[in-house]
Design a protein around this nucleic acid. Structure first.
Lengths: 190, 190
DNA sequence: ACCATACGTTCACTATACCGAACTCTTCAA
DNA sequence: TTGAAGAGTTCGGTATAGTGAACGTATGGT
């Protein structure tokens, strides 16, 4: 019994990367042969990779990324869904803290958008986040003192504050309810 | 004459990836030995990679990414800056459209946060963005009709709309001035 | 028709990424 | 002091990623 002819098993990410390489190459109107020349790879290697068989090294990916003139991470990032999404603002019980996850994108660096509504005269500890997370506060209505415990800021409508979300932080409201949009940008997906 | 002992040359991206792996692992408080176990790799391989010597395959990177519970593309993307930033809301001329860039993170995937203030009864064409960019509208005050030209939405304070920022889109205000936060998330840097 | 040139794929071989097993160096309990 | 258990690194051996040369097919010029 002869062993199978082609290559060896296929990892799922290999297939995705292969498809993406072929897509990008064809978008640029480049032939596989020409791209192999530009990238300094053999046609054989490229053919195998595009077919989804194989398991490229980062050196190989780097060469391909340069030939395609795209960042190497793009070859591995999954495409974000681009369909329109609409989230209607909800009514809340007055006196209650309201946290609403408006949107989460987990391709590449993960991104979360929250809407936070806090009643008057309330102090709220910030939920600690993964290391490297950056938290952005965008004040819609109300006055609030917020930020890292060692460097808080007084914020008014229209202000923006960005700080490390993994350090201890808090929000404290004044005489009015506040409406804040919080954007978490994280290099780590949790 | 004995050939050199260690591994072979080092590509610059290999060094960057190695450093990032070590950083993330230490952030998680994991030993190299334990991580090797979790990822199903040998300690030897991991040691070489973290030292910046070597040239991992995507299967290897995938195993590492899973063990670290991060997307594989993050191992190749560059880090964002994490310093605290405060941006005070500015006053504007009434009757003028105001565009303010509050924040930009230009790592592998770019993130931009804008504050947009549009006077009453104004129609504003959307600036077209790079392919794959997702645009998020967060309405702070006022009513606005906005979105892709073929599928606009009526938005009120607290609403959120996300759509493909590379397609034609627009904003149209009603009787009052509107204050919008716009978040651009682009998985692809161009 | 014919040859030449280009494309993308499949083959046998070579270079090398990964492995297991040793090693050194700490740490800690007995 | 000694032994055990953990850390991280360095060593051959082996599986396999990448190569060059063949292949079959399509197109264009003479």
């Amino acid at each position: 019994m002869t062993p199978p002819s082609g290559r060896r098993p296929v990892s799922s990410t290999a297939a995705a990367v292969g498809a993406k390489i072929r897509l990008r190459r064809q978008q640029r109107g480049m032939s596989a042969a020409e791209m192999a020349r530009r990238a300094g790879l053999s046609k054989a290697t490229l053919s195998q990779l595009e077919a989804g068989n194989g398991n490229p090294t980062i050196d190989t990916l780097d060469a391909i990324a340069i030939a395609l003139r795209i960042p190497i991470a793009d070859l591995l990032a999954r495409d974000a869904d681009t369909g329109p999404v609409f989230r209607q603002g909800t009514d809340i019980e007055p006196g209650e803290v309201s946290r609403e996850l408006l949107r989460r994108i987990s391709s590449g660096n993960s991104l979360e958008i929250w809407r936070l509504r806090i009643p008057p005269e309330t102090e709220l500890p910030g939920v600690p986040h993964a290391t490297g997370t950056i938290e952005h506060l965008l004040i819609a209505t109300g006055h609030v003192t917020a930020g890292p415990v060692d460097a808080p800021q007084d914020l008014r409508p229209g202000d923006m504050l960005a700080f490390a979300g993994d350090a201890p932080h808090f929000y404290r409201t004044g005489a009015e309810e506040v409406d804040i949009t919080v954007v978490f940008a994280s290099p780590i997906s949790t």
